[in-house]
Computed example of a mutant assay.
Amino acid sequence: MAYGELAPKSTLCARLTPQQKKIVKRCLVFFSISIIIAGTIVFACFYIRRMREEQHFIENYAPDIIIPSMDFTVLNLTETSLSVKWDLVIRIPPDLPGYYTCLKGSFQTFILYQGVTIANSSLSYNLIPNWPQLLNTSSIASEGDMDSVVVKGIMEDIKETRDMRFGTRLLLPDCRSGRTMNYTCDETALRFESGSQKKAATFENNSPICHYNHP
């Protein structure tokens, strides 16, 4: 049995008039352009936000500083007088000089006992960019620099406890803003040498880390 040719299926596009086809074409072009514009706006917003986050991170970040060692020396100790000295080695990380802190300048070191500043010193330095460096600084204090409670506490540590802890703060010039970079360090644990009341040194394995305080 022979069959006649099947009639072609009618499509929506085929049923449209030329004017309607033009309208549909314009709508498709407009829709495509809208998609491209929307995608561009989303990408631009994402990129700007990412750049702002990176800028904020850079402005509020600075590498940590480490204190590899601290030595404590009793210069003079009597029932009524006290004079002591701190010798610190400060490790400047390679990514700090040049961008964050100035290559040349001076920094200040503050020694704290139970949260109270009892000594400070200033040291001029000359750093090499992208290179880790060690800086040595010393601070001296006597009973005239400390209140009676602090003096009594340090004397008891020297004579009885033989262990003591000192905090440290560092101030370095900030080349990004022209202000100062303020670092607060973990406490350093010191212990007197056996049979001595004159010299104490770091005895815990972990070196204190100095963290940058965001302004």
Results as ranks from 00 to 15, higher is better:
190 L>Q: 06
2 A>V: 07
133 Q>I: 08
123 L>F: 06
48 I>R: 03
16 L>P: 03
75 L>C: 08
190 L>D: 05
212 Y>S: 04
47 Y>F: 11
86 W>K: 11
180 T>V: 10
94 P>W: 06
54 E>V: 09
199 K>D: 00
1 M>C: 01
98 G>P: 02
55 Q>P: 00
157 D>R: 12
107 F>R: 05
22 K>P: 01
111 I>T: 12
112 L>M: 13
159 K>M: 12
204 E>A: 01
195 G>H: 12
10 S>Y: 00
94 P>C: 00
152 K>W: 04
9 K>H: 13
16 L>D: 07
31 F>Y: 03
38 A>D: 03
57 F>Q: 11
7 A>D: 02
66 I>C: 01
163 D>F: 14
113 Y>T: 02
54 E>R: 15
144 G>H: 10
191 R>V: 03
45 C>S: 12
96 L>Y: 11
200 A>R: 03
2 A>Q: 10
112 L>Q: 10
180 T>R: 12
39 G>Y: 10
172 L>R: 11
37 I>F: 07
129 P>C: 06
70 M>C: 01
178 G>P: 03
87 D>T: 08
32 S>L: 15
56 H>R: 14
183 Y>F: 14
22 K>Y: 02
163 D>L: 14
37 I>D: 02
100 Y>A: 04
183 Y>K: 05
40 T>Y: 13
21 K>M: 08
138 S>R: 10
204 E>P: 00
126 N>E: 15
72 F>D: 08
62 A>M: 09
163 D>W: 06
